[in-house]
Deep mutational scan, measured.
Amino acid sequence: KLCLVCSDEASGCHYGVLTCGSCKVFFKRAVEGQHNYLCAGRNDCIIDKIRRKNCPACRYRKCLQAGMNLEARKTK
């Protein structure tokens, strides 16, 4: 099974979405830290295992598009 954000090996369902541990922690920190990420490109950066750290804005956008939600952990 692959992470729906970066296509690395998924470690489980986190915040409602099948993700790897790295994307799970990234999403939690992004939401709780209330980061205002900005993409230096055109908001279409490739997010994969190798390049997932290059653009936090696009990675966060991809987390949201996949359906990640901090509240999902509280309902399970």
Score class of each variant (00 low, 15 high):
residue 4 L to T: 13
residue 69 N to M: 11
residue 46 I to W: 05
residue 38 L to N: 14
residue 37 Y to G: 07
residue 60 Y to F: 12
residue 70 L to H: 13
residue 59 R to E: 02
residue 13 C to Y: 11
residue 71 E to M: 15
residue 53 K to P: 10
residue 50 I to C: 07
residue 4 L to N: 12
residue 41 G to L: 11
residue 63 C to R: 01
residue 48 D to V: 02
residue 31 V to C: 11
residue 53 K to H: 10
residue 35 H to W: 07
residue 51 R to Q: 12
residue 46 I to R: 11
residue 20 C to E: 02
residue 5 V to T: 01
residue 6 C to H: 02
residue 29 R to V: 14
residue 36 N to I: 09
residue 36 N to A: 11
residue 54 N to E: 10
residue 4 L to M: 12
residue 7 S to T: 11
residue 75 T to L: 15
residue 71 E to D: 13
residue 68 M to Q: 00
residue 13 C to Q: 12
residue 4 L to C: 13
residue 62 K to N: 10
residue 48 D to T: 09
residue 6 C to N: 01
residue 59 R to F: 03
residue 66 A to D: 03
residue 34 Q to Y: 05
residue 73 R to V: 11
residue 38 L to S: 10
residue 67 G to A: 02
residue 6 C to R: 01
residue 31 V to A: 10
residue 46 I to G: 06
residue 16 G to I: 01
residue 75 T to K: 13
residue 62 K to Y: 05
residue 7 S to H: 14
residue 47 I to Q: 05
residue 68 M to R: 01
residue 35 H to Y: 07
residue 62 K to E: 04
residue 21 G to C: 08
residue 41 G to N: 14
residue 17 V to M: 03
residue 26 F to Q: 01
residue 32 E to V: 09
residue 10 A to T: 05
residue 21 G to R: 07
residue 61 R to F: 06
residue 19 T to V: 11
residue 36 N to F: 12
residue 61 R to G: 08
residue 1 K to N: 06
residue 62 K to R: 09
residue 35 H to D: 13
residue 1 K to L: 04
residue 76 K to E: 15
residue 39 C to P: 02
residue 73 R to H: 06
residue 72 A to C: 15
residue 8 D to F: 04
residue 25 V to M: 07
residue 59 R to I: 02
residue 18 L to P: 12
residue 38 L to A: 13
residue 48 D to N: 14
residue 39 C to H: 02
residue 44 D to L: 04
residue 27 F to A: 04
residue 15 Y to H: 07
residue 32 E to W: 04
residue 53 K to Q: 13
residue 76 K to Q: 15
residue 35 H to F: 13
residue 60 Y to S: 03
residue 13 C to D: 12
residue 1 K to W: 04
residue 28 K to E: 13
residue 12 G to E: 08
residue 72 A to P: 07
residue 20 C to V: 00
residue 54 N to H: 13
residue 28 K to L: 11
residue 40 A to C: 05
residue 20 C to I: 00
residue 55 C to N: 01
residue 62 K to H: 08
residue 26 F to T: 00
residue 12 G to S: 08
residue 44 D to S: 07
residue 47 I to E: 04
residue 17 V to E: 03
residue 8 D to T: 04
residue 64 L to D: 04
residue 9 E to F: 06
residue 53 K to L: 11
residue 72 A to T: 11
residue 45 C to F: 02
residue 16 G to A: 04
residue 7 S to C: 09
residue 5 V to I: 12
residue 9 E to P: 15
residue 51 R to A: 08
residue 43 N to I: 04
residue 48 D to I: 02
residue 76 K to S: 15
residue 24 K to C: 13
residue 19 T to K: 01
residue 54 N to L: 11
residue 71 E to I: 11
residue 74 K to I: 14
residue 38 L to Y: 10
residue 13 C to G: 05
residue 3 C to L: 00
residue 37 Y to Q: 05
residue 12 G to P: 03
residue 46 I to M: 12
residue 32 E to K: 13
residue 3 C to M: 01
residue 3 C to G: 00
residue 59 R to W: 13
residue 25 V to C: 14
residue 56 P to E: 13
residue 28 K to R: 10
residue 43 N to L: 06
residue 15 Y to G: 06
residue 10 A to W: 02
residue 69 N to K: 12
residue 32 E to D: 11
residue 7 S to I: 01
residue 65 Q to I: 08
residue 15 Y to V: 04
residue 45 C to A: 01
residue 64 L to F: 06
residue 59 R to Q: 04
residue 12 G to Q: 10
residue 62 K to W: 03
residue 33 G to E: 09
residue 64 L to I: 15
residue 30 A to H: 04
residue 2 L to R: 14
residue 38 L to G: 08
residue 75 T to C: 07
residue 44 D to F: 03
residue 51 R to N: 10
residue 27 F to M: 05
residue 15 Y to D: 09
residue 55 C to I: 01
residue 38 L to F: 13
residue 59 R to G: 01
residue 17 V to F: 03
residue 74 K to W: 11
residue 3 C to K: 01
residue 15 Y to N: 13
residue 53 K to S: 12
residue 66 A to T: 14
residue 28 K to Y: 12
residue 30 A to T: 08
residue 10 A to Q: 06
residue 59 R to T: 02
residue 33 G to T: 05
residue 64 L to K: 11
residue 35 H to Q: 09
residue 18 L to K: 07
residue 33 G to P: 04
residue 21 G to P: 12
residue 73 R to G: 11
residue 25 V to D: 13
residue 58 C to L: 01
residue 50 I to G: 13
residue 17 V to K: 11
residue 65 Q to Y: 07
residue 72 A to L: 11
residue 31 V to R: 12
residue 33 G to N: 15
residue 57 A to I: 02
residue 47 I to G: 04
residue 68 M to K: 02
residue 56 P to H: 06
residue 44 D to Y: 03
residue 55 C to K: 00
residue 28 K to P: 04
residue 19 T to C: 15
residue 51 R to V: 08
residue 66 A to G: 06
residue 11 S to N: 13
residue 71 E to P: 09
residue 36 N to L: 10
residue 59 R to A: 02
residue 10 A to N: 04
residue 8 D to I: 02
residue 36 N to R: 11
residue 68 M to P: 00
residue 50 I to R: 13
residue 8 D to C: 06
residue 25 V to I: 14
residue 12 G to C: 04
residue 71 E to Y: 06
residue 59 R to P: 01
residue 9 E to N: 15
residue 9 E to Q: 11
residue 17 V to I: 15
residue 50 I to Q: 14
residue 12 G to V: 05
residue 17 V to Q: 04
residue 7 S to N: 06
residue 68 M to S: 01
residue 55 C to L: 00
residue 71 E to C: 09
residue 46 I to D: 12
residue 20 C to R: 01
residue 18 L to D: 15
residue 73 R to Y: 08
residue 43 N to G: 10
residue 59 R to Y: 07
residue 64 L to T: 07
residue 55 C to F: 00
residue 66 A to I: 04
residue 54 N to M: 08
residue 32 E to G: 09
residue 18 L to Y: 15
